[in-house]
Design a protein around this nucleic acid. Sequence first.
DNA 1: TCTGGGGTCCTAGGACCC
DNA 2: TCTGGGGTCCTAGGACCC
Length: 426
Amino acid sequence: MKAIVDCNSFYCSCERVFRPDLLNKPVVVLSNNDGCIISRTDEAKSLGIQMAGPYYQARGLLEQNNVAVFSSNYHLYGDMSKRVMDTLRMIVGGDKVEVYSVDEAFLDLSQVPVNELENLAMEIRNTVEQWTGIKVSVGVAPSKVLSKVANRLSKKDKNATECVMVLDKEEKVVDALQRTPIGEVWGVGRRYADKLRDWWGIYNALQLRNMSPAWAATHMGGVTGERLVRELRAEPCIEMKDPLESKKMIATTRMFGKPVTELRDLREAVATYTSRAAEKLRRQYCAAGVIQVFVVTNNYDNNYSYNPQTKGLYSTLPRPTSNTHELIREALPLVEKLFRKGSRYLKAGITLSGLVPDDSIQGNLFVPHQENLNRLLMETIDNVNFSMRDDMLKFCAAGVAKNWKMRQELRSARFTTRWEELMVVK
DNA sequence: TCTGGGGTCCTAGGACCC
DNA sequence: TCTGGGGTCCTAGGACCC
């Protein structure tokens, strides 16, 4: 059996841990740049506040109802996430935990006797809350897709089940699938949900389960659809991932605080993002073979509606590298090629791909000494930035003016990762 | 005026090879 | 008039996830 543990309204819950006065009050957290709403508590949901809705549109409703609003504070959420995951590892063993996202983890419970699952799930729920202050929901079932179904329903009637649901019998599975609308199934997005309803009259998960895997293969994107149906039939097809596996792509992209029109600002932003991406790269001991730069403009031609246009260019490095200045040197000419005078840029980003472990990089016979120095330099910069402040040491190309920096007007303190922001108790 | 920031997997189709 | 078959690798784009 497998379990999925999911933190309830994770970002909002993190804020509440340090603001107990907000317990049972509506809270929302905004995306970067205070753009839209990306986390809501139940109280905020019942006020009719939409997920992913633009902040400026919801603003009236939020103010009327005295909703606590926060800019996102990724230092805090990242650290709280680590505490939750560490707790899970202590309970079920480090090799049984697959961190799926910042607020979710799959657990491999294949070694646990079925009659003990319910108690274990409760223990997980209670221990995580006691140790971290974060409430979680636990869904347990024979496959990942079914555990997601269980997890979702366990939140629906929170108090009755205490956010725990175990699908260990066929009747329970059938009942759960019947209560799951097709669009809520993990792996069925808007596109497929519409198609399944309109073309095939499939409205819930049970109806989808009753289709054949072969049918799913032809109508739901090949092997992906087939796996989905098999998982619904309690045949596990999506296995646990090796926790040591590293990422295949690393991206850093941001909206600007206000539209950018100058090449200089665009270059600074891209250099800054490249530095960040390179840090992530080195943290997983990899080097990148390809760097892509993209910029987003808004095309106001059609009635001033929001209609972003993305343009990108990529370049293949002569040799994979994790060296910040080599990556910046490759990125900047791409920015210059993309830039058009007179355009208003809303956003820019870079992605690194073609990742390889950095110990497998082919050495360059002609610059062996410099290479080692570079590596040492990067390590030193990372250590200083990690232990002191994010951008204590940075590359000149990243600039100091930062006219384009994102807005974050309502951010809480970084209570758990900055000494000077520790909570003060009087 | 104001709409996030990451990721994954799969498929089709083109280029190229023998 | 007649013009193979089989394979690999790469990229773009679509769909999905939180």
